[in-house]
Simulated scan of single mutants.
Amino acid sequence: MRIAVVDYKKEPRKGSLELLDSISRHGHEAVYLKTPMLDATVSRSGVKVYYSTEEVRVDAAILRGLGFITSLEALVKRIGVLEALASLIPVVNDPSRSLVARDKWRCLLHLHLKGLPVPETLVTENPFTAMRYVREKQLVVYKPLMGSLGLGSTLIHDPDLAFNVTRGLMNIGQPSYYQVFLDKPGYDYRVFVVGGRVIGAMKRVNPYSWKTNVAQGAGGVAVKESEEPEVYELGLKAVEALGLDYAGVDVAYDKATGGYYILEVNAFPQWEGLRSATGVNPPDHIVEYVVEKARK
């Protein structure tokens, strides 16, 4: 079986390399495809996808990234070509559903509409709306609408700062995304789901910062389902609600309300921290799931 890993870098990133290695170790042929190099045609003979001049002939694909896209047209093209590929073979995760997860606002909206708990959140292009929101909520987290690893996330308690942030972003055509700060007990959770099953979960602890991303210095501690059944359940429900094949789900407990909330769902998750904490190797689980799906 030929299985492709699709990512946007010229050379495979670490996660993509590990997937390619796992594909080979499972006895299959591994192929790397760079997202911008994919094209598609539709004609009387049907849909065809090309990598440069060669027609793509693989049995399944694992999508790992869309890239940093500077125009709406480029984003639409990449999603459209990947949808063409998904019409021919299993693509994990589905490109359109991956795009929803990548957009923090649409992700939370979908989860909320499915009845799942998410933090109070605002998306806006209006500086006055941002200012009023921070004045009302008192402490919020500004997050890039599309981003990961906790990069760019900033605590804001000053309404004037929110005004200036949103006005600056508005001037370059960018919206603002604000989320009410949760009073976490110094940690939150990452739940890793593959094929409708939690393969591992960890508590992410950072005694030096409010950010609990492993990339921001947090340490991971394995968590069993018997210890945190609600965290496991929310992870599964979030991935199901978004229609993803695999994902990393971030869940936090808020001391102020006594409830658990889904912060984000990452359709292109990293796994080094989870592997170190739990001993679970997600690439193997993803590849085994993709092989099983391709054979059906």
Score class of each variant (00 low, 15 high):
118 V>W: 11
100 V>I: 15
215 A>D: 04
188 D>F: 07
205 V>S: 01
172 I>H: 03
94 D>R: 12
93 N>M: 03
179 Q>L: 13
213 N>F: 09
185 P>R: 01
143 K>H: 04
97 R>Y: 08
95 P>K: 06
215 A>N: 10
113 L>T: 15
145 L>I: 06
164 N>H: 14
212 T>D: 01
99 L>S: 13
217 G>D: 05
163 F>L: 08
155 L>N: 04
135 R>N: 03
215 A>G: 11
173 G>C: 13
112 H>K: 15
130 A>C: 05
130 A>K: 10
140 V>K: 02
173 G>A: 10
217 G>H: 00
126 N>E: 09
120 E>N: 08
190 R>T: 04
163 F>P: 08
151 L>Y: 12
158 D>A: 09
123 V>F: 04
168 G>F: 12
138 Q>V: 11
189 Y>P: 12
203 K>R: 15
152 G>Y: 06
164 N>E: 13
173 G>S: 04
162 A>E: 01
216 Q>N: 01
127 P>G: 00
122 L>V: 07
121 T>V: 06
207 P>D: 14
182 L>D: 07
135 R>K: 14
189 Y>A: 01
193 V>G: 02
159 P>N: 07
148 S>V: 03
200 G>L: 01
98 S>V: 03
104 K>P: 08
107 C>K: 07
189 Y>D: 11
161 L>G: 10
94 D>E: 13
124 T>F: 01
179 Q>P: 02
107 C>T: 10
217 G>V: 03
106 R>N: 11
105 W>V: 11
210 W>N: 12
119 P>Q: 00
193 V>I: 08
146 M>A: 14
97 R>E: 09
167 R>W: 08
96 S>H: 07
149 L>S: 11
100 V>P: 11
198 V>D: 14
204 R>N: 06
200 G>H: 00
151 L>W: 14
194 V>H: 00
161 L>P: 00
157 H>N: 15
128 F>C: 04
157 H>L: 15
105 W>L: 13
178 Y>L: 10
216 Q>L: 09
190 R>L: 02
212 T>Q: 00
204 R>L: 13
192 F>G: 03
178 Y>D: 00
136 E>Y: 07
119 P>M: 05
118 V>F: 09
191 V>K: 12
210 W>M: 12
125 E>C: 13
164 N>I: 04
146 M>P: 03
116 L>E: 04
160 D>T: 10
133 Y>M: 05
207 P>H: 00
158 D>F: 11
192 F>C: 03
200 G>F: 05
159 P>D: 08
167 R>N: 09
119 P>V: 11
209 S>N: 07
96 S>V: 15
164 N>W: 14
139 L>W: 14
205 V>M: 02
129 T>C: 11
197 R>T: 13
95 P>Y: 00
157 H>D: 15
106 R>Y: 05
145 L>K: 12
141 V>E: 02
95 P>M: 02
107 C>Y: 13
181 F>V: 11
196 G>C: 06
209 S>V: 09
107 C>G: 09
110 H>A: 10
129 T>L: 11
175 P>M: 09
101 A>V: 02
215 A>R: 07
197 R>N: 08
208 Y>A: 13
199 I>N: 12
122 L>P: 02
187 Y>G: 05
137 K>R: 15
183 D>L: 07
187 Y>A: 05
